[in-house]
Amino acid sequence: MTLQLSHRIGRMASLLALGEQIELPAECVSCVGKVGTMDLQKVVASIETAAKKEGIIHPSLYRETHALYHATMEALEGVTRGSVQLGSVLRTVGLRFSVVKGKPYNEGAEGDWIAVALYGTIGAPVKGAEHEAFGLGINHI
């Protein structure tokens, strides 16, 4: 039950969020997008909307939406340094995100996993007061 080196979905999601052009294995699907806001719900909604629109997750399957949510929240913990708050503590983000879904294990019965990567800036809502941030979340479906 080892990880396939060519199917590291977290690495692929990270590179896509950083703006790299990569070739995904045939078994993987992905999407990228951008979001800028002081509202945490808008970050989550933007990622979920993009993943559904691009066919990464099935719109009516709760388990896929739930897995995406947990991967997104884990990635947001990295961006916000563990305090998953934005506007309520006067912070804003400008993020590029990516979502990758695939089978990272040699054993197909392990099923699909989903990775969310976030890269961009976070800081006070004052131009020039932000700094770079990165977050990665991976969850099984």
Rank of each mutant, 00 (worst) to 15 (best):
Met1Trp: 05
Met1Pro: 06
Leu3Tyr: 01
Gln4Glu: 06
His7Asn: 12
His7Glu: 15
Arg8Gln: 14
Arg8Met: 13
Ala13Leu: 07
Ala13Thr: 15
Ser14Trp: 09
Leu15Asn: 08
Leu15Glu: 09
Leu15Val: 04
Leu16Trp: 12
Leu18Cys: 09
Leu18Glu: 04
Gly19Arg: 11
Gln21Cys: 00
Gln21Tyr: 00
Ile22Asp: 02
Ile22Ser: 05
Glu23Ala: 00
Leu24Lys: 14
Pro25Val: 11
Ala26Thr: 15
Glu27His: 03
Cys28Lys: 00
Val32Asp: 10
Gly33Glu: 05
Gly33Tyr: 12
Val35Arg: 13
Gly36Cys: 06
Thr37Phe: 15
Thr37Cys: 09
Met38Ala: 08
Asp39Ala: 09
Asp39Leu: 07
Lys42Phe: 08
Glu48Tyr: 03
Glu48Asn: 01
Glu48His: 03
Thr49Trp: 05
Ala50Leu: 02
Ala51Thr: 10
Ala51Asp: 02
Lys52Phe: 12
Lys53Ile: 15
Lys53Tyr: 13
Glu54Met: 01
Glu54Lys: 01
Glu54Ile: 05
Glu54Asp: 03
His58Thr: 01
Ser60Met: 07
Leu61Trp: 04
Leu61Phe: 04
Leu61Asn: 02
Tyr62His: 14
Arg63Pro: 11
Arg63Gln: 12
Arg63Gly: 00
Glu64Ala: 00
Thr65Pro: 01
Thr65Ala: 06
Ala67Ser: 08
Ala67Met: 12
Leu68Tyr: 10
Leu68Arg: 04
Tyr69Lys: 14
Ala71Gly: 01
Ala71Tyr: 03
Met73Leu: 06
Met73His: 13
Met73Gly: 06
Met73Pro: 09
Met73Ile: 10
Glu74Val: 01
Glu74Pro: 11
Leu76Gln: 09
Leu76Met: 07
Gly78Met: 03
Thr80Gln: 14
Thr80His: 08
Arg81Asn: 00
Ser83Gly: 03
Ser83Arg: 06
Ser83Glu: 05
Val84Asn: 04
Val84Thr: 08
Gly87Glu: 03
Gly87Gln: 02
Ser88Pro: 09
Leu90Arg: 02
Thr92His: 04
Thr92Asp: 13
Gly94Cys: 15
Gly94Val: 15
Gly94Arg: 10
Arg96Cys: 14
Arg96Ser: 15
Val99Met: 15
Val100Thr: 13
Val100Cys: 14
Val100Gly: 08
Val100Asp: 15
Lys101Gly: 11
Pro104Trp: 15
Pro104Asp: 14
Pro104Ile: 13
Tyr105Thr: 02
Tyr105Ile: 05
Asn106Gly: 11
Asn106Tyr: 06
Asn106Asp: 12
Glu107Cys: 14
Glu107Asp: 11
Gly108Phe: 06
Gly108Thr: 03
Ala109Tyr: 11
Gly111Pro: 15
Asp112Arg: 10
Asp112Trp: 11
Asp112Gln: 13
Val116Leu: 02
Val116Arg: 00
Ala117Tyr: 11
Ala117Arg: 02
Leu118Trp: 01
Gly120Ser: 07
Gly120Lys: 00
Thr121Ser: 13
Thr121Phe: 07
Ile122Ala: 03
Gly123Val: 05
Ala124Lys: 03
Pro125Gly: 05
Val126Met: 12
Val126Phe: 12
Lys127Val: 13
Lys127Met: 08
Gly128His: 10
Gly128Thr: 10
Ala129Phe: 06
Glu130Thr: 02
His131Pro: 04
Glu132Val: 14
Glu132Asp: 07
Glu132Thr: 00
Glu132Tyr: 10
Glu132Leu: 01
Ala133Gly: 01
Phe134Lys: 00
Gly135Thr: 02
Gly137Trp: 12
Ile138Met: 05
Asn139Thr: 04
Asn139Tyr: 06
His140Gln: 02
